[in-house]
Amino acid sequence: MRVLRLCLFAVAAPFVVMTAGLAVTAALAQDYPTKPVKIIVPYPPAGTTDILARLIAAKLTVSLKQQFIVENKPGAGGNLGNEVVAHAAPDGHTLVMSTAGNMTINPATYANMPVDVLKDFAPITMVAQVSNVLAVHPGVPAKNVAEFIAWVKSRPKQVFFATSSPANTPHMSGELFNIAAGTDMTPVHYKGSGPALQDLVAGQGVQAMFDNMPSVLPLIQAGTLRGLAVTAAKRSPTMPELPTIDESGLKGYAVVSWFGLFAPAKTPAAVIDKLHKEVVASMSEPETTKKLVEIGTEPVLNTPEEFGKRVASEIEMWRAVAKKANIRIE
């Protein structure tokens, strides 16, 4: 055992000195980042969140001269990845690319939340938003939202809408629609938007669906589905011909799926500012903006303060919807 112990100290000594030096430099915020930065994506690879995170990571790696690494931590509707970041060291070297779903709907619907979104995170900036689209099977006679509401009301308990998962923005868009229009559509949950669209296109039981614009866009353009309206407050630059649900008669109806970057709470303000500045700069490049709009994603940037307020107000809105529609995830 003595040999072992000797070896340990022989190895350890030089590194203790080295790391002591490193620890001193790490304290200065203007040197941030001092080591590779992890951007956690709380969803599996693919999907808008992942693509956006990889896009930003590639840009920040160049502009901040440190490796930005995307790591997927899927699980529990995005709560798992959030939890990891909430408990990480608040030094700006672990960030999370989160969404309206796990930041605002989960707190309103999950019985056991592992994190307190408002207390555990420091918002950096919103990055992009995606409108949801109300799309119907072409066999549905309705050509606009008013006709659609009348059609649903004429067939009580007979209309089903597909969702890509319970308690995400597409599902909640539908529940909010039910409340606002006084309809009684029943949600049918699928694992992801692919199988849901498959059944909607084939007319297998479900007649309508709220889904993120990028995934329904090609189907509406090809005529295999009919788009009725977008859920956002404003028309989308990608499909300006689609009216909003708000202007179609349901005043005040506004839902978007947004994506944004958060750091753990207590991250130094200087680090947040630096990240905010760099992300805004990289996402404002016209080339990037154009590409994102083409796939149905609108780059939307704001300040940390605006972003924080938005998260808080949306949580309140979804709490009310979840209570009325009796949605509770255990």
Binding site: P44, G192, G194, L219
Partner: peptide, 10 residues
């Protein structure tokens, strides 16, 4: 159809 049947296709 433009519908992904599995994650790779997505």
């Amino acid at each position: 159809l433009g519908i992904p049947p599995n994650p790779v296709m997505a």
